[in-house]
Simulated scan of single mutants.
Amino acid sequence: MRSPGHSPTILPNGARDGRDMRWEAHRTRRRRQLVEAALKAIRKHGAGVGMDEIAATAGTSKTVLYRHLGDRSGLYHAVVASVDETILADLAAARESGEDVVSRIAAMVSSYLHMVERDPAIYRFVMTRPLETTEGDPSDPIRQITGHIGEQLTQVLHEHLSRTGRVAEADLLAPVWGHGIVGLVRSAADHWLTRTTSTPILTVDDVTRAVVALIRPALDHQAPAPDQPKT
């Protein structure tokens, strides 16, 4: 078997060698299996899970993990990419479930919070950056996740603002509100997860209603009707 880092064989006609394509497919499939094992280990052992525990869950060795995922930072990036894909798929479905902008955004907020409630250990793992990753870095995986969510919200808001006669404001307000809602919900989720016994017990619906109550007045605002010409 060829080593993982070998160069692909290019045939005279420019096509890839069939063995290279099969090996690449094998690596992709194996990497996906290891990421699924990592998610399972995180759920069992918590956000501080070690590579030994992940390898044991996968039924393999740390050497195999390192070969396919790299070090812990590489594992972290692979897990975040998988979580990002899941979140975006859930949000895409949620944004189509509402009849108006408020209900669509409420569905997206609820979908995100249900993910946090369902997988708190995964959420904590994702939000705990490895030492090699710093907040604000363009390649920061967390920034990429929140950016993708913000873009989905921005699109929903831009469509709403344009449809309600606020075209001139849409380019400014939609991205500010969209990414602002992401920050609001993320902070609310962090507070929700770290609540103490003295903190009121809130459900996903409670938090969603609170977020919607804050943004609804801005979304319900209609652009003023144009001045009628004097007769």
Rank of each mutant, 00 (worst) to 15 (best):
R27E: 10
A47F: 01
L65G: 04
G180C: 06
S73H: 10
T28C: 10
E36D: 10
E85Y: 03
D220H: 07
A15W: 06
L172W: 05
A55Y: 08
L91I: 14
H160G: 04
L202W: 07
G5C: 11
P130S: 06
M1C: 09
R19F: 07
V156G: 03
V83N: 03
I201F: 07
A225E: 13
M1Y: 08
V116L: 01
L75C: 02
L214S: 11
Q152T: 10
L91Y: 07
T203D: 00
I122Q: 15
G183F: 07
H26R: 13
G178Q: 09
V207I: 15
E117T: 09
V49P: 06
G178C: 09
P200T: 02
I201H: 11
A56P: 00
R32V: 08
L184Y: 02
S139W: 06
T208G: 11
T203Q: 04
V167G: 11
T164E: 14
P8N: 05
E85K: 03
L39I: 06
D71S: 15
A210E: 09
Y112M: 05
A94R: 05
G5D: 15
I181L: 14
Y66D: 02
I122M: 13
S7K: 13
G74E: 05
Q33A: 15
V176R: 14
A25Y: 06
V49G: 05
D227V: 11
A106Q: 12
H45Y: 13
M127Y: 04
M51K: 04
L173V: 13
S82W: 00
A37S: 11
I142W: 15
G70H: 00
D227F: 07
D119W: 01
Q144C: 08
L193E: 10
R32P: 00
E132M: 14
T60H: 00
Y112E: 02
D71A: 14
G180Y: 04
T203L: 00
T57G: 03
D71V: 10
M21C: 10
P138I: 03
L172V: 11
E96R: 12
A55H: 07
I54Y: 08
A15D: 13
L219Y: 03
F125M: 13
L153G: 05
R129K: 14
I149V: 15
D205Q: 08
P138A: 02
T128L: 00
I201K: 12
I105Y: 01
D20Y: 08
Q155I: 12
L131F: 09
V116S: 05
A121P: 08
A78Q: 01
H77A: 14
L172H: 10
A55E: 02
V101K: 01
L202F: 04
L172Q: 08
V79K: 05
V49H: 03
T63Q: 14
D171C: 00
R72W: 01
P12E: 13
T194Q: 13
R216A: 08
G74K: 02
I122R: 15
T128G: 03
G14S: 02
S97K: 02
N13T: 04
A213P: 01
T199W: 05
S7Y: 00
T199Q: 02
E53I: 10
I10T: 06
R31W: 01
S111L: 07
A55F: 08
Y66I: 07
P229L: 03
T133P: 00
L157W: 12
L131D: 15
